[in-house]
């Protein structure tokens, strides 16, 4: 499988701040990848480096095997949907839809128009007058309809309600199935997108703290809950990542169980459940806390 994006020792410094600090990773072609982390962790800087918007201080980044900076071959395969995108003076929704095709060789105009209707945008509406959610919708439509071989969404759903977000996820999956491409999704709503992702890269304080297939991550831990004594007995010889008690009840997050272990746990009156990807990431990445997870 070809690698779409590779980074080796990638670093971006602003003065004494290491926004991205000696980062190396490889994103396989044609996958949906989550770039996860707190606000200010370095997600946006990393995406700017990948898309040639920002210049690396040291190290290098390659997209489709080449340096993206000022490289028209690579740049024409990219679509970077930014979190707070500015648009030209007095642009209306229809202007965006009429200009974008000139930038994206694979643009699907019919699909774009359908999305405009589905996201209930008024084509004559000025971009400036759009609500935050509607502005997000414009970015989502461009990102999806661009069909760019490397499409990057930076917190694409700000201001969107749960239904609109679900609509986005459904479209993302359906369109990705029909037109496979590399999609990088930066988000802090980890659990909402967990099942969409094939791979997760977690960045904190400019460094990558976790880089693994989501399946593997999810399979790496479970929670067992039940009477505190039973839980304690069961997890005694295991690697406990997290332990919580409430009255006589306890919940523990432990490494994955074999089928036999599951049976033992069930027989002991314990309930085995999933660990949410978000919880897992918090546990595995040294405990960054998501104090705010609201959209």
């Amino acid at each position: 499988m070809t690698l779409t994006v590779e980074a080796h020792g990638l670093t971006k410094r602003y003065g004494s701040l290491h926004a991205v600090n000696d980062v190396s990773f490889a994103i396989p072609g044609g996958s949906i990848v989550g770039l996860l982390g707190r606000n200010g962790a370095g997600k946006t800087t990393l995406m700017q480096l990948i898309t040639g918007q920002e210049l690396a201080t040291t190290g290098d980044v390659r997209v489709l095997g080449e340096n993206p900076v000022e490289n028209p071959r690579v740049m024409s395969t990219l679509c970077f949907v930014k979190e707070a995108q500015k648009y030209p003076e007095d642009f209306r929704v229809r202007h965006v839809m009429s200009v974008a095709p000139r930038f994206f060789p694979n643009w699907d105009a019919e699909y774009a128009e359908r999305l405009v209707d589905e996201f209930r945008l008024n084509r004559k509406q000025r971009i400036k007058k759009l609500s935050r959610g509607q502005l997000s919708s414009v970015g989502i439509i461009v990102g999806l309809a661009s069909r760019a071989p490397v499409t990057i969404f930076d917190e694409p759903y700000l201001g969107l309600d749960a239904i609109a977000r679900q609509n986005f996820y459904d479209h993302l999956l359906a369109d990705y199935s029909e037109n496979p491409r590399t999609i990088i999704l930066s988000t802090h709503l980890i659990d909402e997108v967990a099942n969409l992702l094939e791979h997760a890269i977690v960045i904190d304080d400019g460094r990558i703290v976790l880089d693994a297939p989501v399946d593997e991550l999810r399979a790496s831990a479970v929670t067992v809950s039940g009477p505190a004594s039973a839980v304690d007995a069961f997890v005694a010889a295991r690697d406990v990542m997290h332990h919580q008690t409430l009255g006589g009840l306890a919940t523990a997050t432990i490494s994955a169980l074999s089928d036999a272990d599951r049976v033992t746990a069930t027989a002991a009156g314990l309930e085995v459940g999933p660990v949410s990807l978000q919880q897992l990431i918090i546990r595995r990445s040294g405990g960054w806390t998501t104090e705010e997870v609201s959209a």
């Binding site: 999956l173 099942n195 969409l196 094939e198």
Partner: peptide, 18 residues
């Protein structure tokens, strides 16, 4: 199809394929 399973369960098609 794989894509139908993926869309229905809202999971990554690669996961469905697996």
């Amino acid at each position: 199809s794989i894509n139908e399973f993926a869309a229905f369960h809202r999971i990554n098609p690669a996961t469905a394929l697996k």
